[in-house]
Design a protein around this nucleic acid. Structure first.
Lengths: 187, 187
DNA sequence: GTCTATAATTTGATAGAC
DNA sequence: GTCTATCAAATTATAGAC
C-alpha cells in the first residue's frame, strides 16, 4: 500500500538533493522511478505537491528524532550534545534528507511552507535553551541568540559537510564543536 | 558607460532575491528594467551570465568590506566584532545583497562557482581565527571548527533576519551575539 | 492504477531592422 | 545599442485507452 507513492518520494528526494528542485522535471522523476507520467500524476497533483509531501515527511521525521533527545532526563548540556550528535549522524548517513531540510530554499518552491526556522525541530532547540535558562545552566540571553550560539556552529559544519568542504567526517568534530557551543552560552 | 548593464544587474538582483533565480525569467528582468530582450542579450550572454556577474560583483564587494576590517590593527576579538557588525549592517541595509550571497543556492544555477564557503570572504574569517591561535587569543582548535563557532551564531541570526523571523533589528543582538562567539573560542 | 499521446505555456535565446 | 518578432525546446499537466 502506498508503495508506488513511497518510491516516487524516494526518487524525488534523491533528484532534488542532487540537482535541485528546479533542475528536476517530472519527466526526470518518472524516468528515474521507472514509472510513467500518468502514475505520478495519479499519486500527486503535481511536482510541487511531491515536494510538499516530502517536506512534511522529513520535518516530521527530524522532529521525532530531536523530541526523543529533548525528552531525555539529563542536563541541558548533555541533551544539546546528543542533539548535535544526531544531526551529525543524519547528515553523514542521509545527506539527501539533511540537504532537503536544511538548504532547499523551501520558500522558493513551497510558497506556503513556513521558513525552516519556525518549524518544530527548530522550535525545540529554542525551547531547550529556554529550559536551560530556567535551571540556571544557561546564562540569561535572548533565547534566539542563545540557540543561534549553541547550535550555529554545528549547523555551519553540517553545511560545510554537505558542500563537501570538510576533509574529515563530521563526527570527528563533535567534541570540539559541542564544547564551543556550550562555552558560548554556559552560565 | 555601462549604465544599462548596471541597471540590468540591479533589477536582476532585486528579482532573484525576491522570487529566486528560477522563478525569474529573462522576460521578467526585461519588464522590470523597462528594456527589451535584445538589450539584455546585448550586454549578457544569457540569464546565467547575469547571475555570474552578480555573484562576482557581490562577493568581491563583501570581500573588500571584510578585508578592511581584518587589516585593522587591533585584537582578533575586536576585529571579529567589527566584522559581525558590518555583516549585520549589510544585512539590514541591503538584504537583497546578503540574500544573494548567503542563501542563493549558487551551485544550482552556477555550476562553475565554488561553494560559498570556499570563497574569499569566508576564507578571511578562517584566517582571522588562525591568526588568533597564533597570538594565543584563541585556544587551540581545528580552525574550521573555530570559525564556525565564532561566526556561526551571527550567520544564523542573519538568516533569521532575512527570513523575517527576528522581532528586533539585528543590531540589537550584536553585543550578546559577539559575546557568545568569543566565549566559544577564547583561550 | 498504470500507460501513451498530446495539449498549453513558458522559457532561454536568436535574427534582423533601425 | 536597442528594438520587435519569432524560434526551438522543455515543462507542467491532462485525456483517454487499457
Amino acid at each position: 500500500m502506498g508503495d508506488t507513492r513511497r518510491q516516487i518520494l524516494a526518487v524525488a528526494l534523491q533528484l532534488f538533493s542532487e540537482n535541485g528542485y528546479f533542475n528536476t522535471s517530472v519527466h526526470d522523476i518518472k524516468r528515474a522511478a521507472g514509472l510513467s507520467i500518468g502514475a505520478i500524476y495519479h499519486h500527486f497533483s503535481g511536482k510541487e505537491s511531491i515536494a510538499q509531501a516530502l517536506h512534511e515527511l522529513l520535518v516530521e521525521r527530524m522532529s521525532a528524532l530531536l523530541e526523543e533527545r529533548v525528552a531525555a532526563a539529563a542536563t541541558v548540556c548533555e541533551r544539546s550534545r546528543w542533539i548535535v550528535a544526531d544531526l551529525f549522524a543524519l547528515a553523514e548517513t542521509e545527506p539527501t534528507v539533511m540537504r532537503f531540510i536544511l538548504h532547499a530554499r523551501h520558500q522558493e518552491f513551497l510558497p506556503d511552507a513556513p521558513p525552516i526556522c519556525s518549524t518544530r525541530p527548530f522550535q525545540l532547540l529554542l525551547k531547550l535553551v529556554e529550559e536551560g535558562m530556567g535551571t540556571g545552566e544557561v546564562r540569561a540571553l535572548e533565547p534566539t541568540v542563545g540557540a543561534a550560539a549553541l547550535f550555529g556552529g554545528a549547523l555551519r559544519l553540517i553545511h560545510l559537510h554537505l558542500d563537501g568542504m570538510l576533509p574529515a567526517p563530521l563526527a570527528s568534530y563533535l567534541d570540539d564543536c559541542c564544547d564551543c557551543g556550550w562555552r558560548a552560552v554556559a552560565a
